[in-house]
């Protein structure tokens, strides 16, 4: 597989009390096209910093980030971003939220409508197309945010703890949902989470970050079947992988509390 997204020696420092404190150091990461990669780590490991660097909302202090061989210089629709809060436009209906990125492009109305309809159907939002975000549940709002990012046909979908604020049942629904959407759209997913079970269930690969400063502690390719039901979470293979990753996260989280 070809490397789609490449991080080469990426580091990010933040000034604190006159000194430069590193949040991320020496990140080397290569993400293949159409893969699903999860990044786990305790809080303070720089997970979200990593994602905003890839999104182009922040610039690395050292190293470089390449998408398809081109350096990332700023944010753009080729790297869709979904945040924990969803950050949907509260004054726009579901449909117009999904259409936002397309409205900025010069494509004709019919084409836009066709695409929006497809993504609404894919994300199960067709019946809610005219609803305002305030009428939606937390899970539905995340679906809107995901559909909105996907409608721009991103090369990579960046997910920053997208299900972190949801209750356990909704979260599991959303995990099945994102697996299906990933396969149906053929996009590449880079997801950050602190939930190891979620990372192991969703990813083909799990990257463990160590804290203080954030750096790559382990990179594990998961030998799990491609077709995954929730029941897989109870199998010995899954539980063993999960325990392995959890131990890694704990080991590299020295500065607890």
């Amino acid at each position: 597989m070809t490397g789609l997204l490449e991080l080469v020696g990426v580091g990010r420092e933040f000034p604190r009390r006159g000194r430069a404190v590193p949040a991320l150091t020496d990140i080397d990461l290569r993400i293949a096209r159409t893969s699903f990669v999860c990044v786990v780590g305790a809080s303070g490991s720089g997970k979200s910093t990593l994602l905003s660097l890839v999104a182009g909302l922040d610039r690395p202090s050292s190293g470089e980030i390449l998408l398809d061989g081109n350096p990332v210089l700023g944010p753009g629709p080729d790297r869709g971003l979904v945040l924990q809060s969803g950050a949907v436009y509260p004054w726009r209906t579901v449909e117009r939220n999904v259409a936002f990125g397309l409205e900025l492009l010069r494509i004709d109305r019919a084409e836009r409508a066709r695409r929006v309809a497809w993504y609404l159907e894919e994300t199960g939002l067709t019946a809610l197309r005219s609803a305002l975000p305030k009428q939606l549940s937390g899970g539905q709002r995340q679906r809107v945010a995901i559909a909105r990012a996907l409608a721009c046909e991103p090369d990579v979908l960046l997910l920053d703890e997208p299900f972190g604020a949801l209750d356990v049942q909704t979260k599991e629904d959303m995990q099945l949902f994102i697996r299906r959407v990933w396969r149906d759209t053929g996009t590449t997913v880079l997801m950050v989470t602190h939930d190891v079970e979620e990372a192991v269930f969703l990813g083909q690969r799990v990257v463990v970050l160590a804290s203080d400063p954030g750096r790559i502690a382990a990179d594990i390719t998961l030998e799990l079947p491609e077709e995954r039901e929730l029941a897989i979470k109870r199998t010995p293979e899954f539980l063993e992988l999960r325990a392995r990753v959890e131990d890694l996260v704990r080991t590299f989280h020295q500065h607890a509390g």
């Binding site: 905003s52 999104a55 182009g56 909302l57 700023g74 944010p75 753009g76 629709p77 790297r79 869709g80 971003l81 945040l83 809060s85 950050a87 436009y89 936002f100 990125g101 900025l104 492009l105 945010a145 909105r148 990012a149 721009c152 960046l158």
Partner: peptide
């Protein structure tokens, strides 16, 4: 206006004026 909303808009392809 939440900063997140502004940032997400940039990742959807919006320019500053937009």
């Amino acid at each position: 206006v939440p900063l997140e909303l502004v940032n997400v808009s940039y990742t959807l392809g919006a320019r500053r004026g937009e």
